[in-house]
Simulated scan of single mutants.
Amino acid sequence: MNQPQMRRREWIVHFSACVVSLAAAGGLPRPVAAQGRTEAAAATAKAPRRIVVLGDSLSAEYGLARGSGWVALLDERLKSQKLGAEVINASISGDTTSGGRSRLPALLQQHRPTHLIIELGGNDALRGLPLKMTRENLAAMVRAGKEAGAKVMLVGMQIPPNMGASYGRDFEAGFRTVAQEEKVPLVPFLLAGVADRADAAAWFQADRIHPLAKAHPVMLDNVWKVLRPLL
């Protein structure tokens, strides 16, 4: 065996011995990149849940005493069940999907939510805005939330028949379409169990649009059924 071959053989024997020694001591060190990914994943897992609710007057406690709306009740339920989540109510009365879409980037940057609940669209319908625009805005918000790392869910809405039966059907279907195309969970109708009751008039404020405080626990239950598995 010539000298280069001997040196190569000696190096292989030496390297093998080092591997055995390291394995006995607890294994080879992880690559720096892998360590970084693992540490980042651990940090994400330990990060507290932060839920941003992007909605309109139905989520902004319009006409209600502070703390009696479904978003405030959600915060109470999370605390009572020790789920360790912070709720940020970013809802504004009268907001449309266009308004929510324009506000969302700053909210995502400021709060960095782990979960995003989008409850918008009702005011689009009340104003007779183009349904295609509403769907595009909803889809854009869903995608922005997902790109920011949040688990996103949509909250669907229905409208009274005075807007026209066809418009009402297409409006309701728009939420399902966006949820299916973007693969996010959907609350079919926020006011289920409220607006479809035989005595529905007794559950709304004088404007017949905004629910009374007694309706908000029902609304929370509608949201909770979809949100709880995401937590």
Results as ranks from 00 to 15, higher is better:
residue 231 L to C: 10
residue 223 V to Y: 02
residue 15 F to P: 06
residue 158 Q to Y: 07
residue 123 N to D: 09
residue 11 W to H: 07
residue 114 T to F: 01
residue 190 L to Y: 05
residue 13 V to S: 10
residue 221 D to N: 01
residue 16 S to Q: 07
residue 55 G to H: 12
residue 211 P to C: 01
residue 25 A to P: 11
residue 50 R to V: 12
residue 160 P to K: 07
residue 136 E to A: 09
residue 36 G to Q: 15
residue 170 D to K: 13
residue 165 A to P: 12
residue 223 V to I: 00
residue 179 A to W: 10
residue 20 V to K: 15
residue 206 A to E: 15
residue 1 M to F: 02
residue 116 L to I: 00
residue 108 L to E: 10
residue 171 F to Q: 08
residue 108 L to V: 06
residue 129 L to F: 01
residue 191 L to F: 08
residue 33 A to N: 13
residue 135 R to M: 13
residue 153 M to E: 11
residue 139 A to S: 14
residue 177 T to F: 12
residue 192 A to P: 10
residue 79 K to L: 00
residue 153 M to P: 14
residue 193 G to P: 11
residue 110 Q to G: 10
residue 32 V to Y: 13
residue 219 M to R: 02
residue 64 L to C: 02
residue 223 V to F: 02
residue 146 K to W: 12
residue 206 A to K: 15
residue 87 V to M: 06
residue 89 N to M: 03
residue 139 A to Q: 04
residue 45 A to G: 08
residue 45 A to K: 09
residue 123 N to C: 10
residue 85 A to S: 04
residue 109 Q to P: 09
residue 77 R to K: 03
residue 207 D to F: 06
residue 46 K to Y: 08
residue 199 D to R: 07
residue 81 Q to E: 11
residue 26 G to P: 14
residue 124 D to L: 04
residue 105 P to E: 00
residue 227 L to M: 12
residue 197 R to P: 10
residue 171 F to L: 13
residue 40 A to P: 14
residue 67 G to N: 06
residue 103 R to S: 01
residue 156 G to C: 03
residue 170 D to E: 15
residue 188 P to I: 00
residue 204 F to N: 08
residue 85 A to Y: 07
residue 182 E to D: 13
residue 195 A to W: 01
residue 98 S to E: 13
residue 227 L to H: 14
residue 7 R to K: 09
residue 6 M to I: 07
residue 19 V to Y: 07
residue 26 G to S: 15
residue 129 L to I: 02
residue 57 S to K: 02
residue 217 P to Q: 09
residue 222 N to P: 13
residue 44 T to S: 14
residue 122 G to M: 03
residue 25 A to W: 10
residue 48 P to T: 04
residue 137 N to S: 01
residue 171 F to W: 06
residue 129 L to A: 02
residue 18 C to Y: 08
residue 113 P to Q: 10
residue 59 S to L: 09
residue 93 S to H: 01
residue 18 C to K: 12
residue 206 A to Q: 15
residue 96 T to C: 11
residue 74 L to N: 04
residue 225 K to F: 02
residue 69 G to C: 14
residue 62 Y to P: 13
residue 134 T to L: 11
residue 153 M to S: 06
residue 52 V to H: 14
residue 94 G to Q: 02
residue 87 V to F: 07
residue 178 V to R: 13
residue 127 R to H: 11
residue 189 F to V: 03
residue 115 H to D: 11
residue 2 N to E: 11
residue 117 I to G: 04
residue 179 A to D: 11
residue 43 A to R: 13
residue 54 L to Y: 12
residue 146 K to I: 05
residue 100 G to M: 00
residue 54 L to P: 10
residue 5 Q to R: 08
residue 194 V to K: 05
residue 149 G to M: 15
residue 101 R to Q: 00
residue 219 M to Y: 00
residue 31 P to D: 14
residue 21 S to F: 02
residue 26 G to T: 04
residue 104 L to Q: 03
residue 57 S to W: 05
residue 208 R to M: 15
residue 214 K to I: 03
residue 163 M to V: 05
residue 83 L to C: 08
residue 134 T to D: 10
residue 107 L to M: 13
residue 1 M to N: 12
residue 60 A to M: 12
residue 148 A to D: 15
residue 195 A to Y: 13
residue 136 E to P: 12
residue 84 G to D: 06
residue 114 T to Y: 11
residue 141 M to R: 06
residue 185 P to D: 11
residue 40 A to S: 09
residue 52 V to K: 13
residue 210 H to G: 08
residue 85 A to G: 14
residue 214 K to A: 14
residue 116 L to A: 02
residue 24 A to R: 01
residue 125 A to E: 15
residue 136 E to D: 15
residue 61 E to M: 09
residue 167 Y to D: 09
